[in-house]
Amino acid sequence: MTPLIDRMQQWFVSLPHCATLGLRFVDSAENWVILAVDWREELVGNPATGVLHGGVITSLVDTCSALSAFTGLEEAEAMATLDLRIDYLKPAQPQQTVFCRAECYKLGRQIAFTRAVCYQQDMNNPIAHGLATFMRASSRAVLGGGQA
C-alpha cells in the first residue's frame, strides 16, 4: 500500500456520509482497494427482508472506486465522479458484511477509469458490479484536505 493510499483511505472513511454508513478500509495493493460496510438495520432498503438499500452499494462503489484512482498517484488531488453504473446481480444477504474491490484499470492524464465488484462471502460470486469514470483535478479543493 502506498503512503498516499494510507492517508487517503483514512480521510475517505472519515467523510460524514461514509462515517454515517460505517464504511471501513480493508486492504489495498497495486491498482486496487477493498472497502467494506457492515450490515445495520438503518441501512436497510427492504424492510420485509432486511436487504441493504442499493444506495448503500452506490456509496460503497463510488467511494472505493474513487480511492482506487489514487493507487497510481503520488500526490492528492481533486477527483469528481463523472458517471457510475451499477449492475445488481443478486440481493445482498441480510446481516452480512458487503465488501467492494475496486480497481483503477486506466489512469489517464485527465480521466480515471475504474471497475468494481461487491461481494459477501466469495469474491467470485459477486452481488453487484460497478463501472465508473472520474475527472481528475476537478477543482482547487484537493481531496484529503488543503488547496491546490
Binding site: L15, P16, H17, C18, T20, L21, H53, G54, G55, V56, T58, S59, L60, V61, D62, T63, T81, L84, S139, A141, V142, L143, G145
Partner: peptide
C-alpha cells in the same frame, strides 16, 4: 450526507441512493 467537506458537497453515493 456530505462527501466532500472542503467544497462542501453532497456525497455522490447520497445523490445516487
Amino acid at each position: 450526507n456530505v462527501g466532500n467537506p472542503i467544497l462542501p458537497a453532497l456525497h455522490g453515493g447520497v445523490i445516487g441512493g
